[in-house]
């Protein structure tokens, strides 16, 4: 199996330099955007009622398969709901092979894993006006009372499909296809000009 074994290589945003816009007077708070590179990502396909698979995932990630629009994200590994039979497992770099081998050899029925560590880029967005900023290009209801910590959705940001996860009241993870990442950084830093922003490459 060809894996990302030789690490770390270059991240999805290695071509994008740091970006900074000053914090203007009256800003609601500065936005910080960072790349979170080199997590291993596994696309998991499995029927939601597959109890054996669920138990194994819990063993491997310490999370049960989360239900719709949720991400189980405490600890090193996270499981993100993508659809009724689709999840994204996020783990530390180099972990994908072992996790996948565990699942593939477990005889769980119609279950499949595909490594997608390289197919996505990951950004973290922090700052008091994060919700306001993200709402400029995203039609999801991002109200703190609705899009609570642990909410995860697949949706559109500007012109790119993304996975958006709330990690706490003012922090988000934005996962996008790697070829869209330079666009997403340009889009989000531009949307943050009103507050002041720093984009730090990995």
């Amino acid at each position: 199996m060809v894996s990302s074994a030789v690490l770390p290589g270059r991240s999805a945003l290695s071509q994008v330099a740091a970006i900074q816009h000053p914090v203007p007077k009256g800003s609601a708070g500065k936005i910080t955007i960072k790349e979170a590179p080199f997590h291993d990502l596994i696309n998991l396909r499995c029927q939601p009622d597959n109890k054996m698979a669920n138990a194994l995932i819990k063993k491997l990630t310490s999370h049960s398969l989360p239900s719709a629009n949720q991400a189980a994200q405490a600890g090193d590994r996270a499981v993100i709901w993508l659809g009724p039979d689709e999840w994204l497992i996020m783990a530390e770099a180099g972990a994908a092979n072992t996790i996948m081998a565990n699942i593939e050899t477990a005889n769980l029925g119609h279950v499949a894993t595909t490594e997608v560590s390289n197919a996505y880029g990951i950004l973290t967005v922090n700052g008091k006006p994060s919700r306001q900023m993200l709402a400029k290009h995203c039609a999801i209801d991002l109200d703190a009372g609705v899009f609570t910590s642990g909410t995860a959705v697949q949706t559109i940001m500007g012109h790119a499909g993304i996975i958006l996860i709330a990690t706490d009241e003012n922090s988000f993870t934005v996962i996008g296809r790697s070829s869209f990442m330079p666009y997403l950084v340009a889009l989000l830093t531009d949307a943050s000009i009103e507050y002041g922003v720093e984009y730090r490459p990995a």
Binding site: R10, Q15, H137, G158, H159, R177, S179, F180, P182
Partner: peptide
């Protein structure tokens, strides 16, 4: 809005683009 110039559409880049 901001759907102008370089943000008008995405340009997807390969890893060998540079």
């Amino acid at each position: 809005g901001r759907d102008i110039k370089e943000l008008f559409d995405t340009e997807r880049l390969t890893r060998m683009d540079a």
